[in-house]
Simulated scan of single mutants.
Amino acid sequence: MRKSRLALAGGIAAALAVGGTGFLIGRGTSPRNVEPVVAGPVAAAPAAAREPVVPPTPGNAVLARADIMTLAAQMADAVASGRAMPSAVADAAGQRFELRLPFGCRGPAEAESDAAMRWRYDETDKALRVHVAPVVWTRADILDAAGQATAGEAVEGFWIARPWTASEACPATRDNPAPDGTEAVTLPGQTLAIAQFFDGDGARLGQRNGKPYETVVRLQPDALQAERGFQLRIAGRIADIPGQGPVSCRQPAGAEQRPICVVGVTMDEVAIDNPRTGKTLATWNVTTAGAADR
């Protein structure tokens, strides 16, 4: 027993000696005066520049067909429900617009045709002839048969065919729709128009008195490319109808009739475009002499 205790004590002493020696050796060989590495701040990558988003406002927006349809729909709903003119409709006066009306979608018109908007190609003369006549109304015709018409007052404009679609192109199918007329008929009939009102005491600048927009373009048959018809492009501003606001709607056949609406405008420019080629055939500055500029 005495020998075992001595052996155990000797083993412990030897282990302590070896451990102490290792500690001293490691301390002596470890690097001295080494400055700690401190990571500097990482520079953040510059954020990509973003274009400012400018929301459409009355000052910078150009209304298109869909916007005009929306104004008419809001006013029609107000009239049908007996409410006052919505503020969005009232605030539309003065806003710029550009409207495209497709025509000639079913091909060239016959030589004896009297359609208001038509075209035909003369193979003998190698000439494309386009004819677009504005509709002429009286105030009582377009607004209210029971309303008071001003002496000498005239109204000119265009019906917007198929006012249930925002598409400015010819319809995909070429069926036999009702012919384009110059008078609104009810159940069914034309229900949306743009019109410029010429006061009897005001300026008549831009009034056509029914005179059509006509142009003749010389071109070869292979350059015609009229598969998509043509477009009447009208640019100007939304204008207040005298005593009505920018949009006026009525239901002459009663509450079950879809309202017939007219949007007041001031036309600045009228043009005829070929949507197939993207070319403009003729342009009229309505605010000046009204002569075609090609």
Results as ranks from 00 to 15, higher is better:
residue 6 L to D: 06
residue 6 L to S: 09
residue 13 A to Y: 00
residue 14 A to M: 05
residue 15 A to C: 08
residue 16 L to G: 03
residue 18 V to Q: 00
residue 19 G to I: 08
residue 20 G to S: 09
residue 21 T to W: 14
residue 22 G to P: 00
residue 24 L to M: 13
residue 31 P to G: 07
residue 33 N to K: 09
residue 35 E to H: 07
residue 39 A to I: 07
residue 41 P to H: 09
residue 41 P to E: 15
residue 43 A to I: 07
residue 43 A to H: 00
residue 49 A to G: 05
residue 51 E to C: 10
residue 52 P to V: 14
residue 52 P to M: 10
residue 52 P to Y: 03
residue 54 V to D: 07
residue 55 P to R: 12
residue 59 G to F: 11
residue 59 G to A: 10
residue 60 N to H: 08
residue 60 N to Y: 09
residue 66 A to K: 13
residue 69 M to K: 05
residue 69 M to F: 01
residue 70 T to W: 03
residue 72 A to D: 03
residue 72 A to R: 07
residue 74 Q to E: 10
residue 75 M to T: 04
residue 80 A to Y: 01
residue 83 R to K: 15
residue 86 P to K: 12
residue 88 A to I: 04
residue 92 A to S: 15
residue 93 A to V: 08
residue 93 A to S: 14
residue 98 E to G: 01
residue 98 E to D: 01
residue 98 E to K: 03
residue 108 P to I: 05
residue 110 E to R: 09
residue 110 E to M: 10
residue 111 A to V: 14
residue 112 E to P: 00
residue 116 A to T: 03
residue 120 R to H: 01
residue 121 Y to W: 01
residue 124 T to S: 13
residue 124 T to L: 12
residue 125 D to S: 15
residue 127 A to E: 08
residue 127 A to R: 13
residue 130 V to Q: 02
residue 131 H to G: 02
residue 131 H to L: 04
residue 135 V to A: 02
residue 136 V to F: 05
residue 137 W to N: 02
residue 138 T to V: 00
residue 138 T to A: 02
residue 139 R to A: 05
residue 141 D to R: 05
residue 141 D to E: 11
residue 142 I to W: 06
residue 143 L to K: 00
residue 144 D to A: 11
residue 145 A to W: 03
residue 147 G to A: 14
residue 147 G to F: 00
residue 149 A to S: 13
residue 151 A to G: 03
residue 151 A to I: 09
residue 154 A to E: 15
residue 158 F to R: 05
residue 162 R to F: 13
residue 163 P to D: 11
residue 163 P to H: 08
residue 164 W to N: 13
residue 170 C to M: 09
residue 171 P to A: 08
residue 174 R to F: 07
residue 174 R to E: 13
residue 174 R to S: 15
residue 181 G to D: 06
residue 183 E to K: 15
residue 183 E to F: 12
residue 185 V to W: 11
residue 186 T to D: 09
residue 188 P to Y: 14
residue 193 A to C: 11
residue 194 I to T: 07
residue 199 D to P: 08
residue 201 D to V: 13
residue 203 A to F: 04
residue 203 A to V: 15
residue 206 G to Q: 03
residue 206 G to C: 06
residue 206 G to P: 04
residue 212 P to A: 15
residue 214 E to G: 09
residue 216 V to H: 05
residue 219 L to S: 06
residue 222 D to C: 03
residue 226 A to I: 11
residue 229 G to V: 10
residue 229 G to W: 06
residue 230 F to S: 10
residue 231 Q to P: 04
residue 232 L to C: 08
residue 235 A to R: 15
residue 236 G to Y: 10
residue 236 G to P: 11
residue 236 G to I: 15
residue 236 G to D: 12
residue 238 I to K: 05
residue 239 A to P: 00
residue 241 I to T: 06
residue 244 Q to F: 12
residue 245 G to I: 02
residue 246 P to T: 14
residue 246 P to C: 12
residue 247 V to T: 13
residue 253 A to P: 02
residue 254 G to C: 10
residue 254 G to T: 09
residue 258 R to S: 13
residue 263 V to C: 01
residue 264 G to I: 01
residue 269 E to I: 05
residue 271 A to V: 05
residue 271 A to H: 03
residue 275 P to T: 02
residue 276 R to M: 10
residue 276 R to Q: 14
residue 278 G to H: 07
residue 278 G to T: 06
residue 280 T to S: 14
residue 282 A to Y: 09
residue 283 T to N: 13
residue 284 W to R: 00
residue 286 V to G: 02
residue 288 T to F: 04
residue 291 A to F: 13
residue 294 R to H: 14
